[in-house]
Design a protein around this nucleic acid. Structure first.
Length: 280
DNA sequence: CCAAGGCCTGAATG
DNA sequence: ACATTCAGGCCTT
């Protein structure tokens, strides 16, 4: 079909969505929950568990989405520059833990912590003649001690990780349900998890729970809004309170529409590349 | 409802 | 060297 349909694997993986990925001889390998994915150069996915996954969300009508989010010159530019960037659909539990770990941190450290968590609590498997560690099951992290989790370099987030895992085990949080219900409801639910605030919640919703109107507002996105959108969404204060986050998100969805999360990803990617920030 | 301060850690900056 | 700052925030006061 059109250029729009071609998926750019590199841009998609290197956009701050996933952390446990590595490239070997032009082939990407990554941990996705209890599965390992191999993405060949052509974009073919091979799964360790032989599962069918729509990791690159081919179900999305990307042309329609791009049309829908292209509401201003900046977004049009970002979309054009990083055509092929996709929102990835990840394993929800791994995504939850990943973004709890991400708070007040940076990509390199998040990756290092998650790697240690997988190596310490996950099952070692061999796939394509390489060694991998699956992401730990919720039970494993729920039953670990806080100190054991701390040894992975996550600091004060260790107790959040344990509590979060416990809530999954005890089924206080049900990902299957959250995938089905609407954005507001799902967000309300996962914000009950310790270590999950507005930003982390929006990442989990966008990257693993199929909520494309999520628009994670981290420091970078705030900076981007101040830089390019000061007329549209002018920010009063430096610190974004819960109420302000909510109001801002409303304005953002008003502007970008129901696929605002895609706009966020393009803008984030563009600005981080502009500042030559490192990815994985 | 808002503002301020604390929190693990490691790389970057002074 | 060593101290301080800062990074994809969240929670408590």
């Amino acid at each position: 079909m059109q250029n729009n349909c071609i998926i750019n694997i590199e841009n998609s993986i290197n956009s701050g969505q996933v952390f446990l990925w590595r490239k070997n001889n032009d082939i990407w390998y990554g941990v996705n929950g209890q599965d390992i994915l191999k993405i060949s150069k052509s974009g073919t996915i091979k799964s360790y568990q032989n599962l069918k996954t729509d990791f690159f969300r081919k179900k999305d009508n990307i042309e329609k989405i791009i049309k829908s989010i292209s509401k201003d010159e900046i977004t049009k530019k970002a979309v054009k520059q990083y055509l092929g960037l996709r929102i990835l659909e990840q394993d929800p539990f791994q995504c939850l833990i990943s973004f709890i770990v991400s708070s007040n941190s940076n990509i390199q450290k998040i990756k290092s912590s998650l790697k240690k968590i997988s190596e310490k609590f996950g099952v070692k498997v061999e796939f394509e003649n390489q060694e991998f560690f699956l992401f730990p099951k919720p039970e494993k992290l729920a039953n670990a001690t806080v100190d054991q989790i701390k040894s992975c370099g996550v600091g004060y987030r260790a107790r959040f990780i344990k509590e979060a895992a416990k809530m999954i085990v005890e089924e206080q949080i049900d990902f299957k349900y959250l995938k089905k219900c609407n954005y507001q409801e799902a967000k309300k639910e996962i914000c009950q998890i310790p270590g999950v605030g507005n930003k982390v919640a929006d990442c989990i919703l966008l990257f693993s729970l199929n909520k494309l109107e999520s628009f994670p507002l981290d420091r970078w996105m705030i900076r981007i809004l101040e830089k390019y959108y000061s007329d549209k969404f002018h920010l009063e204060t430096k610190t974004i309170t819960e109420k302000q986050y909510e109001l801002l998100h409303e304005k953002i969805v008003n502007h970008f529409g129901p696929f605002a999360g895609y706009a966020q990803q393009f803008l984030f990617k563009m600005e981080r590349e502009n500042y030559q920030k490192k990815w994985l």
